[in-house]
Amino acid sequence: MQHYSYLDLSPIAEGHTAADALAATVDLARAAEGAGYHRFWLAEHHNMPGIASAATAVLIGHVAGQTRAMRIGAGGIMLPNHSPLMVAEQFGTLATLYPGRIDLGLGRAPGTDMATARALRRHMAPEDSFPQDVQELIAYLGDAGSGPVRAIPGTGTNVPVWILGSSLYGAQLAAWLGLPYAFASHFAPALLGEALEIYRRGFRPSGRLEKPHVMLAAGVCAAESDAEAEFLRSSQLLAFARLRTGQAGKLPRPSREPEQEIPAPVMAQVRQALSCSATGAAATVRDELAALIARYRPDEIMVTGMIHDRGARLRSLEIAAEVLAGLCDKAP
């Protein structure tokens, strides 16, 4: 394993505001850079009361300006919500401002409910144009531009493009286009093994990538003890359960007994969805992450964690970095 990275959704915690969440994201990014994280990615979500990263490109620029050398990127931009030219211009501008530091992960889902998707897109096309849109976007960022229409800034920046996915579709597309692939196993692990096999087996070398490159995403909640980590993680369990039952809101305060607030069938679904994870003190997190790395052999791992307390989230990031640095050293 080559690198470890961090995914942040700028969670808006109960009792706090979007401004608090954005300030916390900057603190987290600075701490991640100091702890040796290779990338710091932000994700596009809309109409979510508990997530402040909707204007993802804007926030990427802000975070890049508050850090020094760490790669900053999108994990991801939901391409069906945007025209390829607009995305190329935005990320071409970011790459011009912060050369060699910007990543562009692309997703096929809307990142929201369908009513909000319609508000974003205004006119929804019935056909799936994602593969064509990805290729159009890559062409805008390439050295030659794309015909009579050019992304300025954008042309010649060759921003690294990743395909993101939680199904087999993204694996097939990333392999066909010869692009790096990141699997959203931190919330949808069911098809992880099959998707990675399809991607690796079907990969076609391209001008952007010579051999398959996989990034695995995992939830991490680390603390000084296993019990404290389980307590802190309850915020994410509660948030995911409320999202699943149509009650999305701000990131809840942690609970000592989340099972009392979540019906058993819903809790079973939540735990399965969040099972690609590591929770506990450093030794426990090390064992659980080592098992994931040994099983799936990722080239990189990206961790994320929804923790209500700002200080506890920073401490979790630091513990995870200490663990992951050791796992990188031991990897073949």
Results as ranks from 00 to 15, higher is better:
178 G>M: 08
214 V>S: 01
199 Y>M: 05
112 T>S: 07
86 M>K: 15
164 L>T: 03
155 T>P: 04
165 G>F: 03
96 T>S: 13
213 H>R: 13
171 A>S: 05
152 I>M: 06
166 S>V: 06
217 A>I: 01
130 F>P: 11
103 D>N: 06
228 E>L: 14
158 N>R: 15
111 G>D: 10
186 H>N: 12
105 G>M: 06
152 I>V: 11
117 A>H: 11
148 P>Q: 09
98 Y>G: 00
220 V>Y: 11
114 M>C: 01
182 A>T: 08
199 Y>H: 07
192 L>C: 10
225 S>D: 08
169 Y>S: 06
220 V>C: 13
125 A>G: 10
129 S>L: 12
206 S>R: 11
95 A>S: 08
163 I>C: 00
159 V>E: 08
214 V>M: 03
158 N>L: 08
87 V>D: 02
173 L>K: 10
154 G>Q: 09
176 W>V: 00
132 Q>S: 05
210 E>M: 12
207 G>T: 15
210 E>K: 15
85 L>P: 03
194 E>K: 15
123 H>M: 09
146 S>P: 00
205 P>T: 02
121 R>F: 00
81 N>C: 04
107 G>M: 07
211 K>A: 08
92 G>T: 04
225 S>Y: 09
185 S>P: 09
151 A>W: 07
150 R>Q: 09
117 A>F: 14
109 A>Y: 02
102 I>S: 03
159 V>G: 10
137 L>H: 09
110 P>M: 02
204 R>W: 00
112 T>A: 01
132 Q>V: 05
222 A>P: 11
102 I>Q: 09
215 M>Y: 01
189 P>K: 13
123 H>E: 13
118 R>W: 03
184 A>Y: 10
104 L>M: 05
143 D>T: 15
168 L>I: 11
179 L>N: 02
91 F>N: 07
225 S>T: 15
208 R>H: 12
187 F>E: 10
214 V>Y: 03
217 A>P: 01
97 L>I: 12
201 R>M: 00
138 I>Q: 08
154 G>A: 02
156 G>E: 14
175 A>D: 03
100 G>E: 12
190 A>M: 12
181 Y>Q: 05
199 Y>R: 11
115 A>P: 04
